[in-house]
Design a protein around this nucleic acid. Structure first.
Lengths: 192, 192
DNA sequence: GACATAATAGAATGCATATTCTAATATACA
DNA sequence: TGTATATTAGAATATGCATTCTATTATGTC
């Protein structure tokens, strides 16, 4: 019933993705999204209650599968998981920009939509548990130091490696894999 | 010649520093700055032509001496330079939040005040030269790979180490020094 | 002591964007 | 075919800030 839709959620989300990848978050306005696909601004609000809801959906659509793959890999091999981030960025360069936009903590508090904050909190917990169980497997027991080591080697170092590439609009070089690998082995004291 | 000033540049800059350290960049409005020291908004404009000029001055006041210390240390010992960042954050926790607000590239282009962009570009060049000359000293010659290694060990890893601490409003733990040190030695293949 | 002037004070304005409103339009279904 | 309604379309409104304006108030100098 009613008129046939010219624009659906996916098209708006895709437009937003491209804008962020090409021009950054500041360039993401309702106007720029509408322009990108020649839609009227009002139509966006037929699909999303607000800019924040749109951005939230974009982020979770990207972060969720990323994390799923990461944890699946981690479950098998830590070093591979550290390198997973580099490979993922190569496969999804545009999505990477969105993934790196926020830390989970910023998204699970503040003015974001309630159900979104819940989803992010769930992701956080899931990640935390994955890291903990891996730390336990790797070190025998979970201490504050062991956790810090694990987070450093699995998350912080791979992300910083990738960040500079993205800023320069480059694909992560093979050398980066080497650096992440060497660092991982050093910090974790093992190569798996 | 005129009325005695109640508020000077330093007070506004200090207020801005505190606001950023406590509540983040989004909370930095002309109003919040004024409130912080019970000044009228208009008075800010007697000292600074714009919010950007104020923010620019705040940033350069912090980044400049940080970098000077970093390069001085680097000139002497690379591992020490990598650890310098951690120590600096412990000494200047509030200033750290400002330092980590931007990358030099964002500040040397765009809408920032011209003379500020110039200063940032100068800083960038100076840092680049320091890194290059250190890479040359360490590896014998400067290749793309050697540079990437050096930047990774001296800058990226220490900064990511520090970032998580700041986000949690914590001082970097001693373990972080250990992780940065181990990583440095692994990546650079030496301990100086 | 009167004057010029720099500063205080905060109200008024401007601007960029998100959001809402009003109208026109096309489509499914009765 | 007529009607209800989801959608397009984009103009109008609201909002949050930075910036500018218009007094008012001190302070040094003549």
């Amino acid at each position: 019933m009613g008129r046939k839709a010219h624009f659906n959620k996916v098209e708006f989300i895709d437009a937003a993705l491209k804008i962020i990848a090409e021009e950054g978050l500041k360039a993401l306005t309702m106007q720029s999204i509408a322009e990108k696909i020649q839609a009227p601004i009002g139509s966006i609000y037929h699909r999303f209650p607000s800019r924040d809801e749109l951005l939230a959906e974009l982020w979770i659509n990207i972060a969720s599968p990323f994390q799923e793959g990461f944890l699946a890999t981690l479950n098998n091999n830590g070093l591979q998981a550290a390198l997973y981030t580099l490979q993922w960025v190569r496969t999804y360069p545009k999505e990477s920009h969105v993934l790196l936009l926020y830390r989970r903590e910023e998204l699970s508090s503040g003015d974001w939509p309630e159900d979104f904050k819940q989803k992010v909190a769930d992701l956080s917990r899931e990640l935390d548990e994955g890291i903990r169980s891996f730390a336990k497997r790797s070190f025998g027991r979970v201490t504050k130091d062991n956790l810090q080591r694990t987070v450093f080697a699995l998350i912080d170092v791979p992300f910083t490696a990738v960040k500079r590439s993205l800023q320069n609009d480059e694909v992560p070089t093979p050398l980066l894999d080497k650096l992440v690998r060497e660092t991982y082995i050093t910090i974790m004291g093992r190569d798996d």
